[in-house]
Simulated scan of single mutants.
Amino acid sequence: MTHTIALAGNPNTGKSTLFNLLTGLKQHTGNWPGKTVLRAEGELKTEKHVYTVIDLPGTYSLYSNSADEEVARDYIIFEKPDITLVVVDATSLERNLNIALQVLEMTDQAILCVNLIDEARKKGIHIDKDALSKQLGIPVILISAREKIGIIQLLKTIDQMTEGKIETQAFKIKYNQTVEKKIKQLEPQIKQIIGNALPARWVALRILDGDIKLLDSLKSYIQNPDFGAEKHQPAQGGCCHGA
């Protein structure tokens, strides 16, 4: 069985370097259907599993402000990769965590890859990965794709998550009282339509944002013949995955 891994992150975080390291020569490129956005896909074999790795376009957010953002967002939410690796720059962690928080609103099957850790150490930057992992509720791995630091630990963590041996409690942003009240009002109505196919809280947020492009994508998703089966599957977002 082949599992899927999506790589998400800001531009210039070394995401493509990590993709090349994981997939080597077993990769190919093309365009996303109906888009001029480049699609890079490759194969990763660990000691235990085989993965298809998708290098999503580098973006600063996962809203519908550009074709790149739309492609990255739609893949994570509609294609449901088994694991999403969020690649961030260790030297600009605070700025990079914005996209990580957006991913965690969409899926709890994520690993934070803090890349360029060698550069951070040269600048005297210390990252407490255990504290960060506890705060975000997902595994955090310190890596340098360029120097091949932390890659063995990353591969082990990927396999463990695939096998359900890692529990996640993905952090969800709490908004002000007015927004949270509207989310609670929308969630039951959304669940009546989509069931467990998508995280209802995330869909509610996008509706409140007035995300027209997302609504168009949502309509196409619901009209897909496979939607009926997905609607009744156990919910994934915000739950724990234990051994």
Rank of each mutant, 00 (worst) to 15 (best):
residue 127 I to M: 04
residue 126 H to Q: 13
residue 18 L to F: 05
residue 52 T to K: 14
residue 133 S to M: 00
residue 173 I to T: 14
residue 184 K to D: 04
residue 203 V to K: 00
residue 32 W to M: 00
residue 98 N to D: 08
residue 43 E to Q: 15
residue 144 S to M: 11
residue 78 F to R: 12
residue 114 V to H: 03
residue 33 P to R: 11
residue 211 D to G: 09
residue 41 E to H: 06
residue 52 T to Q: 13
residue 238 G to N: 15
residue 71 V to G: 01
residue 226 D to I: 03
residue 49 H to R: 13
residue 179 V to W: 13
residue 228 G to M: 11
residue 92 S to M: 08
residue 141 I to Q: 09
residue 90 A to L: 01
residue 43 E to F: 13
residue 64 S to W: 04
residue 197 A to S: 14
residue 49 H to T: 09
residue 146 R to Q: 14
residue 69 E to P: 01
residue 27 Q to L: 04
residue 55 D to P: 03
residue 167 E to R: 15
residue 147 E to Y: 05
residue 100 A to D: 07
residue 111 I to Y: 06
residue 14 G to L: 03
residue 17 T to H: 05
residue 187 E to Q: 12
residue 237 G to R: 11
residue 34 G to F: 05
residue 50 V to F: 05
residue 66 S to I: 12
residue 232 H to A: 05
residue 89 D to C: 15
residue 223 Q to Y: 09
residue 89 D to W: 12
residue 83 I to Q: 06
residue 176 N to R: 13
residue 164 G to F: 11
residue 130 D to C: 02
residue 195 G to C: 05
residue 199 P to Y: 04
residue 172 K to D: 12
residue 54 I to M: 13
residue 78 F to V: 01
residue 214 L to Y: 08
residue 109 Q to R: 15
residue 84 T to H: 00
residue 74 D to Y: 08
residue 130 D to L: 04
residue 10 N to T: 02
residue 193 I to T: 15
residue 13 T to P: 02
residue 148 K to F: 07
residue 180 E to K: 03
residue 159 D to L: 01
residue 187 E to S: 02
residue 56 L to D: 05
residue 142 L to P: 00
residue 52 T to S: 12
residue 216 D to W: 09
residue 80 K to A: 10
residue 229 A to D: 14
residue 78 F to L: 07
residue 11 P to A: 09
residue 123 K to W: 03
residue 95 R to C: 04
residue 58 G to S: 09
residue 58 G to M: 02
residue 173 I to E: 08
residue 81 P to L: 03
residue 27 Q to G: 06
residue 109 Q to E: 13
residue 128 D to G: 04
residue 7 L to I: 15
residue 199 P to S: 05
residue 185 Q to V: 04
residue 182 K to E: 15
